[in-house]
Write a protein that binds this DNA or RNA. Sequence first.
DNA 1: TTGCTTTTGAAAATCACTTTCATTTATAAG
DNA 2: CTTATAAATGAAAGTGATTTTCAAAAGCAA
Lengths: 142, 142
Amino acid sequence: MKHAKKNKFRLFIAQKGLKSTRQRDIILDCFLSSSRHISIEELYLKLRSKNPNIGYATVYRTLKLFAESGIAREIQFGDGQTRYEHANEGEHHDHLVCTRCGTIIEFENQDIEQLQQEVAGAHGFQIENHKLELYGICAKCR
Amino acid sequence: MKHAKKNKFRLFIAQKGLKSTRQRDIILDCFLSSSRHISIEELYLKLRSKNPNIGYATVYRTLKLFAESGIAREIQFGDGQTRYEHANEGEHHDHLVCTRCGTIIEFENQDIEQLQQEVAGAHGFQIENHKLELYGICAKCR
DNA sequence: TTGCTTTTGAAAATCACTTTCATTTATAAG
DNA sequence: CTTATAAATGAAAGTGATTTTCAAAAGCAA
């Protein structure tokens, strides 16, 4: 799994004529071994603990590359922090976000997706992607 | 409709012990006569054309008050711009956003809402609110 | 190795807001 | 109608997240 993503990124880098660098490897390893929804700040701090000389800008730039290559996806939960999640080929999921503790649960629901298609169709829209977030209180916090 | 919102805001202002000012009246009129999804920048520019001395900060502050009073709702489509839409008592809707021309269509779908409740329930979540946006290409742009 | 391009890190810049603060207003009290 | 006082305003400075700039460093092909 992790290996597949490393390869995918390597390929992306090659196809784009970009260079393989020590920093990109480090950041990729760190990202892949992190929780599924990590903010740039969190990742940066985690990186710095082992690589005190890695730059802020490099982390930002590299995460954008991950997203472009398809191994990560940018998400925003409206708290002013951009997060990146691990993206898997052709897979899409939505989120339940606890407004108390911040826990994020992923889910997938084909019925909802189906209904979305119908709604879009009724308005002549062709869906490219969507965003569904349910905000509330998780079981633990209640 | 516009009148009802003006009254609602007036009431809110009174209850909070705030003051009724010329600027708030102007901004409210301008907001109510604008498209349903207006960004702060757009509203500010529209305002400035007739009131060159109205301040940026005042527009921001006043829109926050509109949201607090319940006559407006803050929305974000991930383009880094906060927008405000006209909010109606107890009504919720979701959005279809055209990624080409920016057109925004509102929709409401009870079946989807129902399924959301089911998903949340299955995870022990109690939904407080949700956000559903379908991004794609509208009929006109295709 | 050389030559050319990309990448990096640090610092400055940007963007969308938010806060500060001296001044102006609205409103209540006299 | 004053006066007092608390809130509102506008301009400018401040924030916080993200981007850009730029000189130096590092990949990579020949």
